[in-house]
Amino acid sequence: MRINNGSEPVVRLEGLTKRFGSLTAVDQLDLEVIPGEVFGFLGPNGAGKSTTIGMMLGLIEPTAGSVEMFGMDASRHRSDVLRRVGAIIEAPAFYPYLSGRDNLRVVARYSGGGHESQIDEVLELVGLGGREKDKIKHYSTGMKQRLGLASVLLGEPDLIVLDEPTAGLDPAGTHEFRELIRATATESGRTVFMSSHLLSEVQQTCDRVAIINRGRTVLQESLEDLLHRVGGVYFEVDDSERAETALTAAGVAASVGNEPNTVWAEVGRERIGELNSLLVGAGLVVSGSGVRSSDLESVFLEVTGNGASKEESGN
């Protein structure tokens, strides 16, 4: 029943809305995930990320809107859709009294069976070979995360959904897990949908991102375009308003900065010298200049209003 032809979105959310009483956790959310990409789903705490993932996986009933996965309505073809998905929702959850192997056996049977022969293979892949007989209660957080990834890979899912996958890991564990995710996507060509509030993690792992805030999509584009677009330079001048006028007159998108006597120009760093001459030529005193950091953090803070969000009960 695989109808994915490689061009249609693996995930398409349209007008997705969830209200818990008077609280709107997700509000008219639109989103598309393209086959084969690592998609970052970003938002501050309480923005609606986990609620959105819960609706994608059929754990939470949407108040309105639709979830389409692999071209199928996820609510009508729930089992068919979910058998092609591997997911970790927040922390990986396992039965503490079962061994790692038995836990994977459980997951394989939940997925309809038929994947138990892959257990050894996925355990080796995530570096847990030799520890599969240990009970989960003796696993470290990092080992549980690896087992979570192993469970996700069982059955060779077309889509991997990871909700805050590195929560609770130390920096070394985070790095290792990120590499595993990236390798999984690159080597198998699977689509990865990853929610996180760790900007560095998304920046280092993802191809495309969506940022949501207060349950709404505020931005969705490729990471490369995004970082390029938001780059810019600034000048410290004696009169920022005159500087803005001069730059605008020269065809440069410019704006007065929040800091005193600062003007921003949305251009690359290679034009600093040119614009400096332009401002000096316009009779302005330029006392300094610099490049605006074009990392994801600055974008995130900009589009989410410094990361502020509301509390969300369902998240």
Partner: peptide
């Protein structure tokens, strides 16, 4: 208590 309910239901069974 273990959170395994979501793990199970996210794998396909109704």
């Amino acid at each position: 208590g273990w959170g395994t309910l979501r793990l199970a239901l996210a794998r396909g069974p109704s």
